[in-house]
Simulated scan of single mutants.
Amino acid sequence: MNQNSPIVIGCDHAAVALKDIIKAYLVDKAGIEVKDVGTFTADSVDYPDYAVQVAKAVSDGTYARGILLCGTGIGMSMAANRFPRVRAALCSDLFAARLSRQHNNANILVMGGRVIGDILAIEILKTWLETPFEGGRHQSRLDKFDQVC
């Protein structure tokens, strides 16, 4: 996965502010193109609507990577992981972000806007973006995912 490949991002009303911070970092600091599928206001919305858009785009190969944000990240993770070839990882610390890539080859990063602060979110994002998949024994485990779906 190319570190600079475009990313699709989506959120619900609980994480609009965090989405804007992450998007600004990706575009302005990391030089990564971002497709923002919303939401764009703090008006209440249903998180599955945005999880589906991001997960579908990753599942069908339109985007190699995605980011989903909601209040806790739990609902987005549950919705996204229903799609084939999607490995959405809810990360609230750097260790989880690193291992989600090294061992699980996560292709969607999920974070909770009400759980972590802006600075930690950016550090999690940077770790997730910079950590390569180790492959090897981990690939055979991931292959079993595809046998289920």
Rank of each mutant, 00 (worst) to 15 (best):
K19P: 00
P84E: 14
A80C: 03
T39E: 00
L120T: 02
P6G: 04
A79I: 15
A30Y: 01
D46V: 00
V27C: 03
A80T: 10
A42K: 12
E130V: 09
E134F: 09
I124A: 06
I67P: 00
M111V: 02
C70N: 01
R141K: 14
I22A: 01
C70R: 08
G66V: 03
S5A: 15
A57E: 08
A57W: 05
G71Y: 07
L109S: 09
A88T: 05
P84H: 15
N81D: 09
R141Y: 02
D93F: 04
I74T: 11
I119L: 14
D36I: 00
V86Y: 08
V148R: 13
A15I: 02
I74V: 12
D60Y: 04
L69Y: 01
H138R: 07
Y25Q: 09
G31D: 05
M1A: 14
K56G: 08
K56E: 14
E33Q: 15
R98M: 14
Q3W: 12
V54A: 01
D20Y: 08
L129I: 10
D49A: 07
R114N: 11
A30N: 06
K29N: 07
R87W: 05
Y25S: 05
P132C: 11
H138T: 07
S77N: 10
D60P: 01
S100V: 09
N2Y: 11
N107C: 10
K23M: 04
L109R: 09
G75F: 07
F133K: 10
D49W: 09
P6V: 08
M1F: 11
K19H: 02
D46L: 02
L142F: 08
K126D: 11
Y63V: 02
L125R: 06
T39H: 06
C11D: 04
G135E: 04
A96K: 07
V16L: 06
D46W: 04
D12V: 03
K126I: 12
S140Y: 14
D12T: 01
T41L: 11
E33V: 11
V86H: 07
V16M: 06
P132V: 14
G66Y: 02
A106Q: 06
V110M: 03
C70T: 00
S77C: 06
L142E: 08
L120Y: 07
G38E: 00
G112W: 01
D12A: 04
G75Y: 10
N81W: 11
D36K: 00
I9P: 00
A15C: 09
S44C: 14
Q102E: 15
G61Q: 02
R98L: 14
A14C: 12
L125D: 09
R82G: 11
G10R: 02
P48D: 01
D93T: 02
F95A: 10
I74G: 08
Q147G: 13
A42S: 14
H103S: 06
M1Y: 12
K23I: 05
L129C: 04
V37I: 05
A42F: 09
D146S: 15
N107S: 06
I9Y: 00
F83W: 12
A17L: 09
T39S: 04
A55S: 12
A121G: 08
L109N: 05
Q147L: 14
